[in-house]
Simulated assay, not measured.
Amino acid sequence: MTTTTLPAPAALPTRTLLTCGILAGPGFVGTGVLQGLTRAGFDFTRHPASVLANGDLGWLQVTNFLVTGLLTIAAAAGIRRVLPGRWGPGLLAVYGAGLLCAGVFRADPQDGFPLGTPAGPPAAVSWHGTLHFACGGIGFAALVGACFAIGAHLSPARAWYSRISGLLFLVGFAGVASGSTSPVVTLGFWAAVAIAWTWLATTSAHLMPRGDLR
C-alpha cells in the first residue's frame, strides 16, 4: 500500500510558494463572504468571520482557517527565499500558525449566530473561545510586525504601503478587541482583514520575478 504526503515548503519552487501568498487572501475572504451571504442569522455588521465556525456548516470555516494558515506559512517560506531579512517571514509564519490554531479552537457563538443563540456577547467565554482569541491576538500582532519588517526590504513606496497596511489592520483589530459591538467597528475589521490580505497578495506578486532566481 502506498501513501501520499504533501510536499514540505522547502521542496516547492519559490514561485509556487509565492503563489500561495497570492491565493491565501482571496480564498479566505471569498469563502467567508460567501458563507456570510448564505448562512441564516449571519450579519456582517454584527459578526466577525470567526463565528462562522459554529453550526452545522461550521466545518467550512474551520477548513478555511486551516487551508489559509498553510498557504500563509508557504508564502512566508517563499518570501524568506527572496528577501534578506528573516524577521518578516518569521512573523508571517507565526500569523499562519495563528490561523491554524484559530481553526482548531473555535470561537464562541454570539449575538444570534447560529440561529437560536441569544443576542449579545456570550454569557461565558469557553476555553476554546479563550484560546481562539489568544491565538488571534498573537497572530494579528505578528502580522502587523510582518508588514513593517518585510516592508523594510522593499522600495520606499512599497515600504510605506506595507506600514500603512499594518497600521490600518492594527486599528481594525484594536476596535473589535475593545469589545465594541458597533457596526462601524465590525465592518471596519472586515475591511482591515481585506486590506491585510491584499497586502500579502500584492507583495507576493511583486516578489514573484525574484522567484525565478531561487
Rank of each mutant, 00 (worst) to 15 (best):
Leu52Cys: 07
Ser165Lys: 05
Leu71Cys: 13
Gly116Trp: 04
Ile195His: 07
Gly116Gln: 11
Phe169Ile: 01
Ala107Leu: 05
Val82Lys: 05
Asn54Trp: 05
Phe65Gln: 04
Thr14His: 07
Asp212Leu: 14
Ala134Tyr: 02
Phe65Val: 07
Leu100Thr: 15
Thr3Glu: 14
Gly69Ala: 12
Gly36Ile: 01
Thr31Gly: 10
Ala77Asp: 05
Ala134Pro: 01
Cys20Asn: 09
Pro118Arg: 07
Gly112Thr: 06
Ile150Thr: 11
Ala24Gln: 11
Thr202Ser: 14
Leu213Ile: 13
His132Tyr: 02
His47Trp: 01
Gly151Ala: 09
Ser50Thr: 08
Val193Asp: 03
Thr202Arg: 10
Gly145Trp: 00
Pro121Glu: 10
Pro48Phe: 04
Gly58Ile: 02
Ser178Cys: 09
Phe42His: 11
Asn54Asp: 13
Thr45Met: 09
Ser162Asp: 09
Met208Arg: 15
Leu34Met: 14
Ala97Asn: 03
Gly27Tyr: 01
Thr117Met: 11
Leu70Ile: 13
Thr72Leu: 06
Pro89Gln: 02
Cys20Asp: 03
Ala146Cys: 12
Gln61Glu: 13
Ala40Pro: 04
Leu99Glu: 06
Gly211Ile: 08
Thr31Trp: 02
Gly188Cys: 02
Pro26Val: 06
Pro183Cys: 10
Phe105Gln: 02
Gly175Lys: 04
Ile73Gln: 05
Gln35Leu: 14
Leu207Trp: 03
Val185Arg: 06
His153Gln: 11
Phe113Ala: 10
Val125Glu: 09
Pro84Val: 06
Arg210Tyr: 09
Val67His: 08
Gly88Phe: 00
Leu100Gly: 15
Phe189Leu: 00
Thr14Lys: 06
Ala10Tyr: 10
Tyr161Phe: 14
Thr16Ala: 12
His128Asp: 12
Gln110Ile: 13
His132Cys: 03
Gly145Glu: 04
Ile22Gly: 11
Leu71Phe: 05
Ala194Leu: 08
Ala134Arg: 05
Leu12Met: 13
Arg15Asp: 15
Leu207Asn: 12
Ser126Lys: 08
His128Thr: 12
Asp108Ile: 07
Gln35Met: 15
Pro156Gln: 14
Leu83Ala: 15
Gly103Pro: 03
Thr130Lys: 08
Gly136Tyr: 00
Leu17Val: 07
His132Asp: 03
Leu99Ala: 12
Leu52Tyr: 06
Gly55Asp: 03
Asp56Thr: 14
Cys147Tyr: 01
Trp199Asn: 13
Arg210Pro: 12
Gly136Gln: 00
Val125Asp: 06
Pro9Gly: 10
Trp199Glu: 07
Ala76Asp: 02
Val51Asp: 05
Arg86Trp: 09
Ala191Asn: 03
Leu37Tyr: 13
Ala124Thr: 14
Thr4Pro: 01
Phe189Gln: 00
Thr186Val: 13
Phe113Tyr: 09
Met1Ala: 15
His206Pro: 07
Ser155Trp: 04
Arg80His: 07
His47Cys: 03
Leu187Thr: 09
Phe65Ile: 04
Gly78Cys: 07
Gly25Ile: 03
Val33Pro: 05
Ala8Gln: 12
Gly151Glu: 02
Gly172Arg: 00
Phe173Thr: 04
Leu100Ile: 12
Pro9Phe: 00
Cys20Pro: 04
Thr63Phe: 13
Val184Asp: 10
Arg86Pro: 10
Asn54Pro: 08
Val29Lys: 01
